[in-house]
Design a protein around this nucleic acid. Structure first.
Length: 540
DNA sequence: AAGCCTAGCGCC
DNA sequence: AGGGCGCTAGGCTT
C-alpha cells in the first residue's frame, strides 16, 4: 500500500491506493510569503539529514526546505517548549509537486502529525517578539542542512597517495598493525635514553609524569605547553614524539582507510550540533582537519579549490551586534586588528588580536587582560556588549544571538550553588566556588552571543553561495561548481578552472548579503579572503 | 567486553 | 581562573 502526498488548492491530500483521500488543512502563510513559495517551493520535512541523501543519490537537488527537527530545537530553547522526540519515520509534506510516496497508514499519520507540528511552530514564531529575525534564522538553519548533506554527497577531493607520502616522510613506512612507525619508535627510544630512568610508557600520561619526576623534572602534567618550558635534552624528542604520534593516531593510515574512498573524504556535518548554533561533525574529525594533512586535499584535474575565509569574523560580528561605529571604522580597511592599532587604542597588531579574543572569551590574565581597559576606552559599545552578556550569565539569565537563538538556562545544580552562597552564614569556600561558577557561566554567555551570531552570519553566507553556484538543468551538483567544505568561518568550493572567477564573485557577493540579512543596515564590513588553489594547504 | 571518564591535542 | 567542539589512547568500572 502506498500513500501519495499531494498539494491541493484546499489543503494537502493523502491519497491511498484505492483512491480514498484524507484532506489535511493547508498550512497558512502570509500572502507575500505564499507567493514566493509558489515560485520557489520549500519542502517541509521532519529531517533534512534523514530525507535528503537518497534524493541526492537519485539526482534530485532540493532548492529550499524547512527542517522541522532543527526548528523544533531552536524553538525549544526560546519558548520553553519541550523538544519533541517522536518524529516517526515519514516526511511531512511537500509544498509544490509531489515528492514522496509514503508507505502505509502509519506514515500517513506521521505526515499529518508533522503538518500539525509545522503549524504549531509557525504559531510560536509569530508569537515571538522578533518573528522576522526568527524566520530568517529558521530559513538559514534549514538551508545549511541542505548544504551539509550536499557537501557529504559531493565529498572533499582527497589525494590519498599524497597523504600516504606525507605520512611516510614524517613517520617512516606504514608499519604492520599494532606496531609503531619507525620514527615514533626511534623518538621513544631517544626519550628513554635521555631521561635515563628505565623503560617509559610514553603514551600513558600518568606513567610519563612519574617517569619525568623520577628524572628530577618538576611536572604536574604532560601538556606540551608545560614541557616546552623545561630545559632538558629529552624534551625536544618528547615534544616531537607527541606531534607525530598525534598525526599517526588521528589522521594516519587508519584514518585514510576508514574515511577516504575513491578520492573523496565524506564527513557527516551536523547542523545545529553545537549549543551556540555552530555545526558539529560526526566521524572523521572534519572540523579539526589538521594543517599537517591539508596538502592531501587536492582539486581534480581541470578543477580548482576556491578557499574563502571570513576575515576576523567574530570581532566584526561584535562590532555589528553592538553598533560600535569606531570598531566598524577600524574594520573598514580590511584588517580589523591593524585598524585598531591605527585608532591608537593599542600599540601592536598582536595586542589588538589577543585583546579582542580575550574580550570575547572572558580572558582575565596576561596581555589580553592588560590591554582590555584600553580597548574598552576606545570601543565602549563593543566591549560593553560582551560585558553585559557576561553579567547576565552570572545572574543566571539567558542571552540571545542576533537572530534569536537563546543560550540554555544554567543547570539546576548551578542555581542551587548560587542560592547556597547567598544564604546566611555560608562558608567562605562555598561563596568562593559559587562565584567561580558564576564567572564561568558568564564567560559562556559572553562568548555565546558572538559565536552564535557568527554562526548565523556563516549560515547566511553559505546559503547565498549555494544559491549562486547552482544552475538548473546544467547537470548534477558535482558537475558544477559546488560546496565541498565548511569550518565555522571558511568555505571551500570545488570548481572547474574556467569558472573560478564567477565562484570568487559569488563568495564575495554572498558575504555582503549575509551582513545585510543578519544585521540589516550596518557600517560593519565582512570581507572574505579568497584563493583559488590546487591544494588546500596553498591557501593562507 | 562494553561503557564511561580523563588527558591531551587538533580545529575555529 | 579563556569560549565552542571531536577524537584517540589509556585506564577505570560494570
Amino acid at each position: 500500500m502506498h500513500i501519495v502526498v499531494d498539494r491541493r488548492p484546499d489543503g494537502v491530500a493523502l491519497i491511498d491506493d484505492d483512491g480514498s483521500e484524507t484532506l489535511v488543512p493547508e498550512p497558512r502563510l502570509p500572502a507575500a510569503v505564499a507567493e514566493r513559495e509558489v515560485e520557489h517551493p520549500r519542502w517541509v520535512w521532519t529531517s533534512t539529514v534523514q530525507w535528503y541523501p537518497p534524493l541526492l543519490e537519485a539526482g534530485v537537488r532540493v532548492d529550499r526546505c524547512y527542517d522541522l527537527k532543527l526548528v523544533d530545537a531552536i524553538l525549544a530553547g526560546i519558548a520553553g517548549r519541550a523538544p519533541r522526540r517522536d518524529w516517526g519515520s515519514a516526511p511531512a509534506t511537500s509544498r509544490g509537486d509531489t515528492l514522496f510516496d509514503l508507505d502505509g497508514a502509519t506514515d500517513a499519520a506521521h505526515a499529518i502529525s508533522a503538518l500539525a507540528a509545522w503549524e504549531s511552530q509557525q504559531a510560536a514564531i509569530a508569537a515571538h517578539g522578533e518573528p522576522t529575525k526568527l524566520t530568517l534564522l529558521v530559513a538559514a538553519e534549514s538551508a545549511g542542512a541542505l548544504a551539509a548533506v550536499e557537501m557529504r554527497h559531493a565529498g572533499l577531493p582527497w589525494d590519498a597517495a599524497a597523504h600516504d607520502t606525507l605520512l611516510t616522510e614524517a613517520l617512516g613506512p606504514r608499519p604492520p598493525p599494532g606496531q609503531r612507525p619507525a620514527q615514533l619508535e626511534a623518538l621513544a627510544h631517544d626519550v628513554e635514553q635521555l631521561l635515563g630512568v628505565g623503560p617509559v610508557s610514553i603514551d600513558s600520561p600518568p606513567a610519563l609524569v612519574s617517569a619525568l619526576r623520577r628524572a628530577g623534572l618538576e611536572v604536574a602534567t604532560t601538556r606540551s605547553g608545560e614541557l616546552k618550558r623545561i630545559d632538558h635534552p629529552a624534551m625536544a624528542p618528547l615534544l616531537q614524539y607527541k606531534t607525530l604520534s598525534r598525526l599517526h593516531t588521528a589522521n594516519g593510515w587508519n584514518w585514510l582507510d576508514e574515511w577516504v574512498r575513491e578520492g573523496r573524504f565524506r564527513p557527516t556535518f551536523v547542523p545545529g550540533g553545537v549549543v551556540t548554533g555552530r555545526w558539529a561533525s560526526d566521524g572523521g574529525g572534519a572540523l579539526q582537519l589538521p594543517k599537517q594533512v591539508r596538502p592531501a586535499v587536492h582539486a581534480d584535474d581541470g578543477w580548482a579549490l576556491v578557499v574563502a575565509d571570513a576575515a576576523q569574523l567574530e570581532p566584526r560580528i561584535l562590532a555589528a551586534l553592538s553598533g560600535d561605529a569606531a570598531m566598524a571604522t577600524a574594520g573598514a580597511g580590511g584588517d580589523l586588528y591593524a585598524g585598531i592599532v591605527a585608532s591608537g587604542a593599542v600599540v601592536t597588531r598582536e595586542h589588538a588580536k589577543v585583546g579582542m579574543l580575550g574580550a570575547m572569551y572572558g580572558g582575565t590574565t596576561g596581555i589580553s587582560a592588560q590591554v582590555l581597559p584600553r580597548l574598552a576606552r576606545s570601543f565602549p559599545r563593543a566591549i560593553g556588549y560582551v560585558e553585559a552578556a557576561a553579567r547576565a550569565g552570572e545572574r543566571g539569565e539567558r542571552v540571545s544571538t542576533r537572530l534569536g537563538r537563546t543560550s540554555p538556562a544554567p543547570p539546576t545544580s548551578w542555581r542551587e550553588q548560587q542560592s547556597a552562597a547567598v544564604a546566611e552564614g555560608a562558608a567562605e569556600s562555598v561563596v568562593r566556588s559559587a562565584r567561580s561558577a558564576a564567572r564561568s557561566w558568564g564567560r559562556f554567555t559572553r562568548n555565546f552571543v558572538v559565536q552564535g551570531t557568527a554562526a548565523e552570519w556563516a549560515l547566511a553566507w553559505m546559503a547565498g553561495v549555494r544559491r549562486r553556484l547552482w544552475t538548473p538543468d546544467a547537470g548534477p551538483i558535482e558537475s558544477q561548481p559546488h560546496l565541498v567544505f565548511f569550518v565555522h568561518d571558511e568555505l571551500i568550493v570545488h570548481s572547474p578552472v574556467d569558472r573560478v572567477a564567477e565562484v570568487e564573485h559569488a563568495l564575495h557577493e554572498a558575504a555582503i548579503d549575509a551582513g545585510r540579512i543578519v544585521f540589516g543596515v550596518t557600517p560593519v564590513t565582512f570581507p572574505v579572503t579568497v584563493a583559488a588553489v590546487q591544494r588546500y594547504s596553498e591557501a593562507k
